[in-house]
Design a protein around this nucleic acid. Sequence first.
DNA 1: TGTACATCAGTGAACGCGCGTTCACTGATGTAC
DNA 2: TGTACATCAGTGAACGCGCGTTCACTGATGTAC
Lengths: 210, 210
Amino acid sequence: MPRTTAARRPRAPRGQGERLRADILDAAGRLLADTGDEAKVSIRAVADAVGVTPPSIYLHFADKDALLAEVCDVRFREFDRVVESAGVAADADPLAGLAARGRAYVAFGLANPEHYRLLFMTRRAPVASGADPWEGHEAGRAAFEHLVAATARAIAAGAIAGEPTSVALQLWAAMHGVTSLLIALPGFPWPDPDQLVGDTMRTLVAGLRP
Amino acid sequence: MPRTTAARRPRAPRGQGERLRADILDAAGRLLADTGDEAKVSIRAVADAVGVTPPSIYLHFADKDALLAEVCDVRFREFDRVVESAGVAADADPLAGLAARGRAYVAFGLANPEHYRLLFMTRRAPVASGADPWEGHEAGRAAFEHLVAATARAIAAGAIAGEPTSVALQLWAAMHGVTSLLIALPGFPWPDPDQLVGDTMRTLVAGLRP
DNA sequence: TGTACATCAGTGAACGCGCGTTCACTGATGTAC
DNA sequence: TGTACATCAGTGAACGCGCGTTCACTGATGTAC
């Protein structure tokens, strides 16, 4: 089967070259989600999806890694926005806010498994020790800080006990555990995901009660 | 840099052809652990590590997928053996047995990150619905049943409450969450892994108390 | 005891493929004088 | 107003690479008669 070639994209007018950049990022993200396979996101495939020739990609990104890193960043921002807004909507009760974040976290992962895989299941190079570990991952930093803040509010309200960062890590690890197992092992006889998330959340909250 | 070619392996004597099969499995596993990169485990690289030519692999494995599936199975058996024996050693107190399994689980993952990745972080095709989900993954079934059994003992002893399978899934998801995040995001400013595992285990056990 | 034959455990060379990336180029559009 | 030139936004063709896999073959060893 030959690659489905998109219509040839008309050349951008002068000064609008940056539009192609945005289209490339978008196409790469969609390609990843649609094929469900990071190996299928090749420079050629992305160029084809956008309707442009492969060398054009290099007018906007240094190399393939730079492109993927930026796709990752864009999707991370989306992830943070979705999870945080679900949490904020329920924050009247800080515990409900945390639970809503957990549910939204898992739901995002299951709805966008390949994006989730790229964000949280693919090895991201460790930065040099001493450097800022968040350098180049500002969206990641924001997402984590949002979680720590929500956790701190629940602690301040007396709903749970513990040190905010430690508790946030436990919640994150548990929700990530559920999400990534469901994504990695779809053949396993899982119970209903909602129930698994609910049970896990209830156990954690009970265990963290002051 | 040219691939470091192993000494040419002497031809097996008659009737001993199966020895090469075992050596191939072993070399593929070591290659995965040493390079830390599944993409580097190519038919050519494995053949080279064993000291044989690429077509020889096909005398023993139908194709690359079959080889990787069997590597996976071998490592899964090792994983189950390590975790279960750590648990059995502490089973005098069922709760201590569960905790020992949790620690051994995470330790195995951190000591063999690429094997862990292959076992639990790489998508394994879902089987046809209706078929036995464990078909071809007998080692996986055994490992999971060992965990459920240990959980059931802790429940029977009155140390924790709940339904064995549900509780086992919660414990698994949490330990997997910790392990896989540490593996996937080594650049994150993690606390000491032992502390993270200990905190998570304590929270879960507290939340599951009868 | 000798010899033809079968079998086993591989080898050597090649196939076609898709990949990331580079390089010289093109053609439309704006700007200086 | 005309024209030379610069710039922008790409294209077309090719590079070398490593990959999974196939195919015809080889040479040592056993077995039948």
